[in-house]
Amino acid sequence: MKKDLFVAFVILFVVILIFSGVEIQSVDEYYLTHLDDIREDSETVFLTVRCDEALEHIGQMNVELLASGLLPSNGVILARTEYVLREGDSVYEILDRAMRHNRIPTEYVYSSDGGVYVKGMGHLYEYDCGPLSGWSFSVNGEPAQSSCNRLELSDGDEIVWSYTCSLGLFSAQEGGGGQ
């Protein structure tokens, strides 16, 4: 009987562990974000999210996505907007805050080495436009050389996320390692 009690406790422990690791949020709770007001002395960056290249290669596009009509016809997922740069913010934090505020569904992949990879934004996912397609970003016109959560920003930086249909820039987002 003692053994049984022990087993029961172990099971209870595991169940509690699982439930404590689960966090359920409603849609409104998740998207609730606070954007700092832009003051004269605040540091800011500009963020743009576009998918022009996907529209140029519409022939390769995922048929189901094309039929759903969710793809913006002008290629703008998020128009150029100014956001306040908080202490220690990377491209990832800025993007996450902006996407939550604008309620644009974004899926991240957190890799084991601590990097963050953007799998899809605004229903447009990697591989949706051919086998070499995916999201990549540039800061001040420079294609990214590291993961988006490792890139520190400074005042006035221009971040552009764009969808590519050819591997070049896409692999850069993964830190150059994912050929």
């Binding site: 690791g21 966090e23 949020q25 409603s26 849609v27 969710l70 569904p105």
Partner: peptide, 15 residues
């Protein structure tokens, strides 16, 4: 899989 437009709720930050 987290694709889709009709989000029911968020589980650990994933829809």
């Amino acid at each position: 899989v987290h694709r889709g437009t009709h989000i029911l709720f968020f589980l650990n930050g994933n829809p």
